[in-house]
Amino acid sequence: MSHPDFVVEAVEYAAALPDLRAVRETVFVREQGVPAGIELDALDPLCDHVLARDTEGRPIGTGRLTPEHRIGRMAVVPDWRGRGVGDALLDALIERARAHRWRTIALHAQVDAIGFYLRHGFLPEGKQFEEAGIQHQGMVRMVDGPNPVADREAALAAMLGLVSTARRELLIYSRELDPGLLDQPELMTAFRHFAISGGELRILLQNPGPAQRAAAPLIGLAQRLPSSIGFRIVEEPVDRDFAGAYAVNDRGGWYYRNLGHRFEGETRLDAPGRARQLRALFQETWERARPGVEFRALGL
Rank of each mutant, 00 (worst) to 15 (best):
S228K: 11
S228Q: 10
S228V: 05
I229D: 00
G230Y: 11
F231M: 06
R232C: 06
R232T: 05
R232M: 08
R232F: 07
I233E: 15
I233P: 15
E235K: 12
E235T: 14
E236H: 14
E236I: 14
E236P: 14
P237G: 02
V238K: 11
V238Q: 10
V238C: 04
R240A: 03
D241H: 15
D241Y: 15
D241L: 15
F242T: 13
F242R: 15
F242W: 14
A243G: 15
A243I: 13
G244N: 14
G244V: 15
A245T: 10
A245C: 07
A245K: 11
A245E: 08
Y246Q: 07
Y246A: 07
A247W: 02
A247D: 03
A247P: 04
N249L: 05
N249Q: 01
D250Y: 12
D250S: 07
R251L: 14
G252D: 11
G252I: 12
G253Q: 05
G253N: 03
G253K: 10
W254Q: 04
W254F: 13
W254R: 07
Y255M: 09
R257C: 03
N258T: 11
N258G: 13
N258K: 15
L259P: 10
L259K: 12
L259G: 04
L259D: 08
L259N: 12
G260M: 10
H261Q: 01
R262N: 11
R262L: 13
R262T: 12
F263I: 00
F263L: 00
F263D: 01
E264P: 02
E264D: 00
G265I: 05
E266V: 08
E266R: 06
R268V: 09
R268C: 06
D270C: 04
D270K: 02
D270I: 00
D270S: 02
D270Y: 01
P272V: 02
G273V: 13
G273P: 09
R274E: 10
A275N: 05
A275W: 04
A275F: 07
A275S: 08
R276L: 05
R276F: 07
Q277L: 04
Q277I: 09
R279C: 05
L281W: 08
Q283M: 12
Q283H: 13
Q283F: 08
E284Q: 07
T285E: 11
W286H: 00
W286A: 00
